[in-house]
């Protein structure tokens, strides 16, 4: 009796869970439609993933009624954002758990009424926070012309790292977006912070 009851009960629970999880699909779908999320991904950013995402984004953008200029800008900024994430995940960490965490990222492209948003989130080694914060503060303090001069200065004097980064990514993102970069560092634990970046493209 008891066993039969339990088995019935667990069937019922499973069915409930089943329905709940199905409902969640619809609710997620609604959220993504309402918020006009064109693209959303969380996970490990690999080279193959980059190729696939850019391909998908290009196809999706082709179907949007936007000027070629805007489409190009969104695509270009997305490339830099994704490659920033991709290069960031190479940074060494000690344990496997930390490694997994540091390699994972969130990417979203949102179409708002008058502009596009590219949003990224990723874990960052606490030791790197001060440096990145200072760089972003500097970038945000510059107007269009000074940003151009700063870009030229780094381009002309800096060198390319082994990873192929040139220290120009964030400057380029700010230049192309034409808006200030919104960002935040969230305290996670003694080793990590979570870096959120919001890039607005008019």
């Amino acid at each position: 009796m008891t066993i039969a009851y339990l088995s019935e009960y667990s069937k019922f629970v499973r069915a409930e869970k089943h329905i709940m999880s199905l409902r969640r699909i619809y609710s997620l779908y609604q959220t993504m439609e309402q918020e006009k999320i064109i693209l959303s991904f969380s996970g490990v950013v690999t080279s193959d993933f980059l190729t696939a995402v850019l391909d998908i984004m290009e196809t999706k953008m082709n179907h949007l009624e936007e000027s070629p200029k805007t489409k190009k800008k969104v695509f270009n900024v997305l490339v830099e954002c994704l490659q920033n994430l991709y290069h960031h995940i190479d940074d060494g960490c000690d344990t496997n758990k930390e490694l997994r965490r540091s390699k994972s990222a969130l990417v979203m492209v949102v179409r708002e009424k008058d502009n596009f948003l590219i949003q990224t989130g990723n874990y960052i080694d606490k030791k790197s926070v001060a440096d990145l914060d200072a760089r972003l503060k500097k970038i945000n303090s510059l107007d269009k012309e000074h940003l151009r001069d700063y870009y030229r200065e780094i381009l002309g004097t800096g060198s390319v790292s082994e990873k192929g980064t040139a220290g120009l990514g964030m400057i380029d993102i700010a230049r192309k977006s034409g808006n200030k970069l919104e960002y935040e560092f969230l305290d996670i634990d003694e080793n990590f912070s979570f870096f959120s970046l919001n890039v607005k493209i008019d």
């Binding site: 002309g156 040139a166 120009l168």
Partner: peptide, 13 residues
Amino acid sequence: LEYFNTSSSKCIL
């Protein structure tokens, strides 16, 4: 070029 990333910009320089 239709577009290049910042990693390429240095190499092009």
